[in-house]
Design a protein around this nucleic acid. Sequence first.
DNA 1: GTGAGGCAGTTACCATTCGTAAGTGACTAT
DNA 2: ATAGTCACTTACGAATGGTAACTGCCTCAC
Lengths: 126, 126
Amino acid sequence: MVVKGLTMGNNQGMDDEPLAPFCAEYHHAVEVIGGRWTGAIVRAMLSGLTRFSDITHAIPGLSDRMLSERLKALEAESIVERCVAPTTPVRIDYRLTEKGRALGAVVNAVTAWAEEYPRATEARAG
Amino acid sequence: MVVKGLTMGNNQGMDDEPLAPFCAEYHHAVEVIGGRWTGAIVRAMLSGLTRFSDITHAIPGLSDRMLSERLKALEAESIVERCVAPTTPVRIDYRLTEKGRALGAVVNAVTAWAEEYPRATEARAG
DNA sequence: GTGAGGCAGTTACCATTCGTAAGTGACTAT
DNA sequence: ATAGTCACTTACGAATGGTAACTGCCTCAC
């Protein structure tokens, strides 16, 4: 049995080397951004939404409770930041950090995949 | 034999049009591949693992019960297929379909992101 | 100045899902 | 016969998620 590749240096653009079966950083990342509703929330924010209620209204089925919880998790991961504007009434903006905006590439990859393979079918366009 | 799938990194950021805040296909996709353990399982399979126990052993913390459940969900989405070899004893291989292999692009995007922004830190080179 | 309604959440409660552990049946090695 | 592997399934308590109601604070209509 041969195990190698658990240490990954830099394969950003080189996918010739085989993928390691497990990678802790990847695993953490996929569990964070793959959490329930999280993908949809990040997409909504990437599209420009910053207000709590704009996000809830944009995502069918998403409740206040869930959004509040996910936003806290995303803040803990430095993916979003909460900005309070001292206006009246107080206005809160949730903004993506650079780290959060960098998820645009992931969202685009998922979107491309979702469009090419729409739903449990093997029939492909073309 | 032509294998295409892992090498499809050409379309990841060329759309200038703004992202829609919500997209049902994207949402479905992100909920499927972002399910608990699913990202890790797909990565392990992309790396070449096909056996049930190889996958459980490759992913720390993953239990038989979870793998069994996730594999069924992935089968239902036509991302993996279950192949039974009539040997003795019976040998079962889980293989990625073309749809599943196409997730390589997503896995690569997440891996790249995870490596660039390792963990709740804003400090970065550059 | 009373009532309706929006914003940004929190709290309460119950259902679903997850994690841990143990069991199953067919086969293999000692 | 006993122990071990493989590919699962079952049981059960714990954690998470969904639904809905409630909180303050503010604005708008009457």
